[in-house]
Amino acid sequence: MAYSLKKEVEKPERLVGGHRLCAGCGASIAVRGVLRALKPEDKAVITNATSCLEVSSFLYPFTAWQDSYIHSAFENAGATAGGAEAAYRVLKKKGKIDETFKFIAFGGDGGTYDIGLQSLSGAMERGHDMVYVCYDNEAYMNTGIQRSSSTPRFADATTTPVGTVIPGKPQNKKDLTAIIAAHNIPYAAQTTFISNFKDLHEKAEKAIYTEGPAFLNIMSPCPRGWRYDPENLAEICKAAVDTCVWPLYEIEYGVWKLNYEPKKKLPVEEFLKLQGRFKHMFKKGNEWMLEEAQNYVDQKWETLLARCK
């Protein structure tokens, strides 16, 4: 059925208000976007890696989740979702359950790119029927904006502060979506919040309703960590896509597909200039940073185009 935002927003919210995430947080937008793709009649078990999302969405005795929810630790959301799914399979086999349940794990980039990567990789390889969603805000925001392997080069983070000798994070961002795709799982994709959420919705729907393991990487801006006014979230997401810093693509059973190609690929500055974490890159004498950032984006974009041919 064709996507209709109007229809989709009529569905009951599965993440209610009253959670304690920051004003303008991308994480809850990602969660709402993904859960909207669930058929209302299907139940879900949500797993959460320790993260901003986790500590804000289930502060005893208040859960923001309408569905069953389990948090156990930082680095094990993959295994946790897999464990619940394994129990589901056996209880279903034994005739103890007849409802349909879907298994969705949410982790930040710290819990996904870094400390939870092993558990995620294991769960993907074992083939659990689950979706792992990374809401990628490019640093450890829960503990106070420390760099992760998802933090882009030159970003000012509290463990890669811009100093007189080192200009922010020295390393480039890890390409996690490609790493997960290399597990040869049925479905992997990356998306963010643009226009009417069609891209996110359709990817979430495919991820949830494709049998077997699926992975969604959702760029989810963090106003505090990226240093911008919360109201500008949509603008930043659009810039990320139009500069090809965060391309929208999916990999279905090993086939790469580009979902959006900007009519005019914007220079990377258009994304960087909106955020305080990259402010130093625009100082006189730092032109080389912008140049290197542009070169990196160009090279990654060309690689992606080649893969999607």
């Binding site: 156990s72 295994a79 946790t80 897999g82 464990g83 129990a87 209880l91 092993q118 558990s119 294991g122």
Partner: peptide
């Protein structure tokens, strides 16, 4: 046996699997 045997990639994931499976209503 009817058991779902999950051959995980670490003991950390073994216990994580058990915790989730038990919470889900299974015996782990």
């Amino acid at each position: 046996v009817d058991t779902e045997f999950v051959a995980v990639e670490s003991e950390h994931s073994a216990m994580s699997t058990c915790i989730a499976a038990q919470a889900a209503g299974g015996r782990a």
